[in-house]
Design a protein around this nucleic acid. Structure first.
Lengths: 305, 305
DNA sequence: GGACTCGTTCGAAGGTATCGAACATGTTAT
DNA sequence: ATAACATGTTCGATACCTTCGAACGAGTCC
């Protein structure tokens, strides 16, 4: 194959346009370079050097080789770095999947801190909706999930801890008919109005349509933030995460309604497969155990404050 | 860097799960393989082999290296082929640009014949409209242009020969008002009807709108074939290449009209830059000098016969 | 024309890869 | 439990490859 010395030789000849000048540059004897050039030609079974004139130069084939050898050398040095990375206990890449209710910006400082480690680990952070987080972990699409809801399913070698608890509030716009309805609201009263629910982009059943009654009209929106907006505009009703609409409730832009059937809080989980633990995963798990970050992820950002 | 021996060693160990078995496979002494393994680890400054158990195995880092080394080896063998190709006088790639009026299928047998040469030269064949062929040659986007119209422009080292002559006919649908108009048709009579012209997909001025008069209504269509269809449907009028509509004229689906201002035939050219002549280009030029192929390209296919 | 440059060939020296023997440890079959 | 066999490492000797410097013929420049 090709060595760094081969590349250096080709580049020195290309740039100096002379074998003896190239040898001087490389700190080698001209005879060494001459011999090495012959060896290269023999190895590739191609004329790489034009000796028809006084000073030796690259043929077009030699030029192509010089160019491509440079690219290959880059490839190899990247590979060397990656191999060292892994030998040092870091992963090649880390895929983190969060529930879409969680705001990506909360993770930005963490990502920056991780970058400062200069581990070389490729990071990939994506969202999943509904039970999609557990699915991603099972399928191997995720190495780490943040904010998974429902009880942890049966997955080989699964490890997890609780992130926190998310509380729900049934809220309507002040001008919505249900805003003036007698409390606690009965299911029949709710069923007469359109429900707002988060669209399920996966093929799974609509797990996120909590409290939507049979036959009830529904509007599916692309995420929790969109759901908040839709309900604030009076387009429909449904459950919303309390901490994420706190200032809307306080300002009256949304009105909380007590329900005949209250909704239990949800526990959020951090989970990973225990058979693939590298330093990057360990680092992230450590961060996710920090109470301040945890609170921020669970409670979210009040985008309406 | 990496050698084919390095790759062979890594793969033999991975597949046999043992250093001594790998050595047997490679036809080498176990001590040689042991030493080579140590050298590899030293070169990458990483533990590539797990010696904690009876039989030596690859670490995750070693596995990544084995995988990536295989990919790199493939890269190098491709490069070796390319270098040999060029040293043998072939180009790395050949870009042929034809005028879009020419049917691609006419070139299929030529492409197949070229493939049979097994030169390794990458072939790229594209269309240009209007003066786009000359532009492609000047810009270096084309190595060879086929069917360029107008006089050859000033391009450094330009070489060319005539391919043939294309004749035009002013044709209208039988139900079109101009079909019954008195001959020869005067410009004023034509100007009252919509012109069909080939859309210019480049940024150049509309050179292909020959005979379109100022203020005349126009319909731009995506190519000569589309123009033929549009005129046959009576959507408008204009000049068409005589040989490509011969059977439509014969069947009466299109009616030829004599004009007060006849259109001169166009000369088509084959052109290339003379400073980059390899064996592939030479081969194609040779083919393009064959009278049968030339006639087919110039006269085209009568898709309506 | 003389001084210098260029690249090749050649023999010698230096560096690297490979072999086989010896050895310690682990595994398997009886 | 023991003997036979397997595994991988270390080490010295040998083989192979790379590099050097000297000598040389041909080209270039002042």
């Amino acid at each position: 194959m090709l060595s760094t010395e081969d590349l250096a030789l080709l580049e020195a000849i290309r740039e100096s346009g002379s074998l003896s000048k190239a040898a001087a540059r490389l700190g080698k004897a001209p005879s060494t370079v001459s011999h090495a050039a012959r060896q290269l030609e023999s190895r590739f079974d191609a004329l790489l050097f034009d000796r028809s004139r006084y000073r030796l130069r690259l043929t077009p084939a030699g030029q192509l080789l010089a160019l491509e050898a440079a690219r290959l050398t880059l490839d190899v040095s990247r590979l060397t770095r990656r191999v060292k990375q892994i030998a040092g206990g870091w992963e090649d890449r880390l895929c983190i999947v969060t529930d879409e209710i969680m705001e990506f910006e909360t993770l930005l400082p963490v990502i920056k801190a991780f970058d400062r480690l200069q581990s070389g680990v490729t990071l990939r952070i994506t969202h999943e909706m509904l039970g999609g987080t557990w699915e991603a972990l099972r399928d191997g699409r995720a190495d780490l999930v943040v904010g998974a809801t429902n009880e942890p399913p049966v997955i080989a070698k699964l490890r997890w801890f609780e992130l926190g608890v998310i509380e729900w509030v049934f809220a309507v716009a002040p001008g919505h008919p249900l805003a003036r309805a007698k409390e606690p609201l009965e299911p029949e009263a709710v069923a007469a109005h359109r429900a707002i629910m988060v669209a399920d982009s996966s093929r799974r059943p609509d797990v996120r349509s909590y409290g939507v009654l049979g036959g009830q009209a529904a509007l599916a929106v692309p995420g929790m933030l969109a759901k908040i907006h839709a309900q604030r505009e009076g387009l429909g009703v449904g459950w919303l995460p309390r901490e994420r609409v706190r200032s809307l409730l306080k300002s009256g832009a949304l009105v909380e309604k007590r329900m005949a059937d209250p909704r239990e809080p949800n526990t959020l989980y951090v989970a990973w497969r225990g058979d693939h633990e590298g330093r990057a995963l360990a680092w992230w798990l450590d961060q996710l155990r920090q109470p301040r970050l945890t609170a921020r992820l669970v409670n979210g950002l009040d985008r309406f404050a």
